[in-house]
Amino acid sequence: MTTTIEKDKTELFTAEIRAEIDRWIAKYPTEWKQSAVMGALMVVQDNNDGWLSTQLMDQVAAYLDMPSIAVYEVATFYSMYELKPVGKHKICVCTNVSCMTNKSDVIVEHIEKKLGIGFGQVTEDGRFSLKEVECLGACGGAPMMQIGKQYYENLTPEIVDAILEGLE
């Protein structure tokens, strides 16, 4: 009998997460499983309160047969991966030129005051975190922000209040 040690991957993640990652894998040529790393990291992050631990990155590496360092490289390069815990609602405010000239600073200040946190911080109850982001491609609705996967445009402090109150 020839033994080839195929690492057992069923111990990695839940069946649902594996299925989602597998959907990403299926998009690419079979010998390019690595292409699924970005999708996989996002799936895993979404299922881990919005952030990636080293252990999770290692698991993604194992699942995709990649060296761990190659996964760290990807996870640290793209700004949407979080390597520290974030709030349940990650508020990303754009401060690039079009938003800036439409008073994104007022929006930022308002949120900072309201939640008592600055960029890169999480509220004590863990509900919100605040992040400064670069142009999100919605300058027509400046000033704008993204919370979770949702865009919110044409913001005023009042609109921000309403949005935040509407969140669980």
């Binding site: 998009k27 690595q34 700004s79 142009c135």
Partner: peptide, 26 residues
Amino acid sequence: HAHLGAGAYICGEETALLESIEGKKG
């Protein structure tokens, strides 16, 4: 198929974009 980025302006540069689809840093 659609490939989803993860936040990096440089991936708009065409060869960075290709690297990114290949599962690497852009």
